[in-house]
Simulated scan of single mutants.
Amino acid sequence: MAHANPELIQALRRTAQKLSSGNPYQWGHMGSCNCGNLAQELTQLSKAQIHEFAMQGRGDWREQVEEFCPTSGLPMDLLIADMLNHGLTTSDLQNLERLSDKKVLARIPLERRDKMRHNYRDDVMLYLNEWADQLEEELLPNIKLDLSFMNEEKVETKLVAI
């Protein structure tokens, strides 16, 4: 499961928002599918660049992730490595492409979950938002705030007219 961090959580939310606002979505296009849209957000590459990188390899995202080699130097492997550096795992990418992570799906009401399709924009947006919520819930208990400054005596200042 992904390493919960604010940057990844925001990227998931921005990806869902952009899809909601009409960002290109085409499940069969490596640069504008589920993973392709998140890759655009994390790497700042265009859908065309991502698709071009993917076409140098074989298969869809699931297959390319299975064949991922961090030392190959292939553009798609470099792109996947960049996404992993943002806290994702290879399993996360495979699950995103098929909307299949059981923990994320368990958060979605059964009647909605049973009707989800991995290649339907609205279902992808729902999945991304639920995943972001899940990661945020994992992250929040680990955040410690130093509020000791609130216990210090208030320093009173006076303005003196000269």
Rank of each mutant, 00 (worst) to 15 (best):
D114A: 13
E52S: 12
L42C: 04
D146K: 12
N34K: 05
L140S: 09
W27S: 10
E152F: 11
M116C: 03
T90I: 11
W27L: 14
M125I: 15
V155W: 00
D122R: 08
F149D: 14
A4G: 06
Q49V: 14
H29D: 11
Q40P: 03
L42N: 04
V104C: 11
D82K: 02
P70C: 10
D77G: 07
L139W: 07
I50K: 03
K103E: 03
Q94H: 07
H29M: 15
N5D: 02
R58M: 14
E138M: 10
E97D: 12
Q64C: 08
K18E: 15
A2F: 03
E111M: 10
K103M: 15
D60S: 11
G36N: 01
D133L: 14
N37E: 08
G73V: 10
L19F: 02
L42R: 03
E97A: 11
S72N: 07
V160A: 11
L145A: 13
L145F: 05
N5I: 05
I162M: 11
P75K: 13
L38P: 07
L42T: 01
E52I: 13
K154E: 01
Q26Y: 09
N151Y: 01
W61Y: 04
Q56A: 13
L147P: 04
L88E: 02
N151D: 00
L78E: 02
V104N: 04
P70K: 01
Y120K: 02
E138T: 13
A106N: 09
L78G: 05
M150W: 08
E97K: 06
E41H: 04
L105W: 03
E130A: 12
G22W: 11
S21W: 09
Q64L: 13
T157Q: 11
L74G: 05
Q134N: 06
R121K: 10
D133P: 02
A161V: 14
R117S: 03
R14S: 04
V160H: 06
S20Q: 14
Q44N: 10
H86F: 07
S21M: 13
D77W: 02
D122N: 08
A39W: 05
C69R: 11
C33Y: 01
K102L: 15
D114V: 15
L88P: 03
A2Q: 01
L128K: 02
A54G: 08
S46D: 03
I108T: 12
M116L: 12
Q64F: 09
D123Q: 00
E156G: 15
T89W: 05
T90K: 08
G28L: 13
L140P: 00
R62Y: 04
K18C: 11
M30L: 15
R117C: 08
R113V: 12
K18G: 10
G36F: 05
S21R: 12
D123E: 05
N37W: 05
M1F: 05
P24F: 06
Y127D: 04
D82P: 01
D82G: 02
D77T: 08
R98C: 10
N119L: 11
D101N: 15
L139H: 06
A39I: 01
G31I: 12
V104L: 14
R14P: 00
